[in-house]
Structure formats: structure tokens, C-alpha cells
Design a protein around this nucleic acid. Sequence first.
DNA 1: TGGAATGATCTACACCGTATACAATCTACA
DNA 2: TGTAGATTGTATACGGTGTAGATCATTCCA
Lengths: 255, 255
Amino acid sequence: MDRRDAILDAAVAIADERGLDAVSMRSVAERVGVTPMALYPHVGSKAALLDGMIGRLLGEMWPADGLSPPAGPGSGADGPDPAEPATGGPGATAPGAGPPDWRTQLAAIGRAGRAIARRHPWAASLVFARPAVTPDSVRAIDVVYGALLAAGVPAQQVPRLERLLGTVVFGFAASEAGGRFGPPESNPRSTRGLLPEGPLPGHEALADVLAAPADWDAEFEADLADLAEIIEATARRARSEQRRDRPAADRASPG
Amino acid sequence: MDRRDAILDAAVAIADERGLDAVSMRSVAERVGVTPMALYPHVGSKAALLDGMIGRLLGEMWPADGLSPPAGPGSGADGPDPAEPATGGPGATAPGAGPPDWRTQLAAIGRAGRAIARRHPWAASLVFARPAVTPDSVRAIDVVYGALLAAGVPAQQVPRLERLLGTVVFGFAASEAGGRFGPPESNPRSTRGLLPEGPLPGHEALADVLAAPADWDAEFEADLADLAEIIEATARRARSEQRRDRPAADRASPG
DNA sequence: TGGAATGATCTACACCGTATACAATCTACA
DNA sequence: TGTAGATTGTATACGGTGTAGATCATTCCA
């Protein structure tokens, strides 16, 4: 194995076990069995090491060979794969069936993203904190592009919807991991949680709903369904406009 | 002014000027004119200080007096308010007009959130990194609840859609600030950007679109419009189901 | 007037990222 | 086979970090 990969693995393992703050050049070096300064020829800097860590995670999603998804939930990623609601990999297909339709494909990609973020709770916020332009992420984005095009989304809108999808998936995961979604009363470790003084008509009207515990799996699925609805509406709108513009002609690329 | 507020102001100012990494107990203390350890009785710890900073920002959004939005674009938030595309405050109304409809209200809240995140680029990622349950954020959430209820969203779905809205707005802002959206070639500060080896059919099919520069303002507006569409579809669905369940009766609160 | 509480200070500790200088090992070519 | 060059690891050191601990000044209330 490449020395760089060993370093990245050590860093990911430390982050999983003791949190992202525990990832220091010294701790990683110690785990690899080397002096801190020995890491620099391989990773360049601490920031580049963090970049490499998220790249490594996206590598879990699309192992190495291009577009094909992993064979199954335990295909050598990083240990047992607990409690995934639906599919194993981002593009998982029943063997022998045709190519998956864009809905199941996008939903699977979204679920895979959240699954990774749950396995590595430190990752989601990193995705927002630094540009993600590693080869692995480019590959992942390309698959999403393909699914959106297959759904009939016009090319103009595809990059935007890809970004929106990523924002929702990783934003959801980051909120889950960071505690943004947690109710205040479950977080009594500080003097926070004191309510504002003014009236809160919205909260009062929703008292019943807010009292019930939330089901995050269900909420994520509902968000995915809403995103699919957006995609479908966009495709539908494009189809009707195209029909109106050119009733029965071949389409030429504009511009 | 409370000493705590002065500390928070100093921290925010430092983050605005020199980035979040420049916010240290020592730098903040120096700006306040005090020893580092003197901060601890007021803010507790560095983590709590960061919490307080994002609370302070949400305080910009809803100044102090409960639900009423700021009177106009320059109503004393934090100085001049540069380059806002549409409205001034989250609930801005033309004076004398009726209460704003939920669409403009939600759009204004979203724009205000993004505007804050642009003024303080370090903030958006912090929102994801730590739980946001300050009094100010509770107040902000309450306004969103009200708008969603006014749109006709059933109570069951209101908290989820509020979270989805916040995820999209802050996720967009964090991506903008963190560089997740930036094209790789505009980020040449490292040896990243090397493309994967396999084919990228999606990118090839979208070559024209990807070559054009993106308009982030327009993209944000499009995302807001899509969210509004989701909200409307949810409300519409709920109305039709309700009509089917109780053909001509007064509605009683369920549960 | 006398505690007690609060706020601020000083010192110190363990840790951080990494610049710099140097030694060891491996590679490629004469 | 010998040697130059590159690559990889080490040792040391510097300036920075958050904060525990002890101490001192001020202020407020009994």
C-alpha cells in the first residue's frame, strides 16, 4: 500500500475514534509509526491532509474502477455496515435487471452519501469547509449529471440541481452529525437553551408535533422525495416548453 | 453594553477581518483590552464563544424586539447594508400594505440568511458544525413556522420543511464561502484538480454549460423558487386529502 | 465593618503546525 | 560498480494555541 494511503487511513481512523480535533500531525504520525515531519513529503500540509481524508471517503463510495458501484454492503470499505435502510451502493441494481431509473439511482446516491457521513460524523462539515475537487468527487458528480440528464432535466439546469442535491444531502448529514437538528432540551451541557422572551406563536401552534420525537430516516427519505419532485417538475416544464417552441422539428443546439 | 457583548463583537470583527482561524482567546482579549483568562467568566470556553458568535449574527437578522422585522434596509443592524438583491429585511413590507404573503416572506428570510453569511463568510460552516439553539435562532425558526403554516403546510410537515429550508440556505452559503461551488481551475493554489482517469460522460455532455460562468445570485433565487414549489405542492396535497376525508365539515385539530 | 462573590491577572503546562538542518536510504546512470 | 541525485525520515526549535491553578482587586450585601 502506498505510504500516503496509510497516512490517510490513520487520519480517518483517528477522526472516527476520537473526533476531528484529535487529528494532528503528531497523532497521525504516531499511529503510522513515524515522526510528525515525515508526513510532509506525502501530504504536504495539514490542510491537504484534510482534503485527502474527504477524498478517501468519496473513494469508499466509488471504489476505484470508474462508475460501477460496489458489489455489496461489505465489499471491503471499512468494516461492517450497520443499519442502512435501503440499498448497498449508490447505483446498486438487482443483478440481471436493466439499468436503474434515475429516481432510484439518485436516491441511492443520496443514501450512500448520508451513510458515509453517519459512519464518519466529522466528514460532512469538512465538505462545506473546503473545496471538494478531488478525482473521486468529480467522478461522483458525473454520475449525478448522468442521472439528471436521464431524468430529462435540460442541460442548463443540471449543474444547479446537482449542487442543490449535494447541498441537501451533505447539509442534512452535517446537521445530524453536528447537532443542529437536535432539540435543545437534549443538549443540556451548557447554559444555552434559554428561550427568548417574546411570544412564539409558531412553536405554540406546533406544540404537539414538536413534542414528538423525529424520525431522521423518514425525514431524509421525505427530503429525497421532494428533490425528486423538483427534478421531475423541471423536466416536465422543459418538455412542454420544447414542444411549444418547436412543434415538430429536430432540435438544434442554441448558441 | 454588557461585557459579554463586547467580547462577542470583538470576536466577530476579528473573524470578519482576518478569518475564523484568527479568532483566539488571546486575540479577542487583546482587542477587548484585557487578559485572555479574563474572557472565561463571560464566555465559558472557546467553543461557547463560537456559539455566541453565531447567536450574535442571528441577532442581526431579528434585532431584538420579538417578531417585527427591521423597519428598513439601514435600521441599525451593523452599518450600511451593501448590495442586497431584493428586500431589506426578512419580513419587509411595503408600508401600508397588508401582511406579506408566505412566498415573499420566506424568500426574504432566505435572502437575509444568505446576506448574513456573505457578510461573515466564516459563519455558515459554523452553523453546521455546532448546534444552533440560541434564543435568536429560536425566534427566527418561529417566523419560518408561521410562514409555512400560512402557506397551508400541514403541521406534521412544518418542522421538516423548516429544517430543509435552513439546510439549503445555509448549505448554499457555506458552499459559496467555503469554495465548494468554485470551479477547480479557479483554485490553483495546490496540486489538486487532477482529473480521474475514467471517462466522464456527464461532464462531456455538459461541456458547454460547464464552460459558462455561474451566476450565484440567480442560482440561489432558482433554489428558493424550487423550495417554494415544494411547499406549495405539499400544501396542495394536504388540501386535497383533507377535502376527501371530511367533505363538508369544520376542521378539528387532529390528535 | 466584614465577609463573599465577581472579575481580572500572572504563571505554567501540554499541545499544535511547521521551518530548518541533517542523516539515511533508494534509484538511475556512467 | 561507483557515484550523483532524489526521496524519505529524524531532531530540534519557534511561535502559537486553550485553559487549569493560584492570586489579587473590587464591589456588593448582610
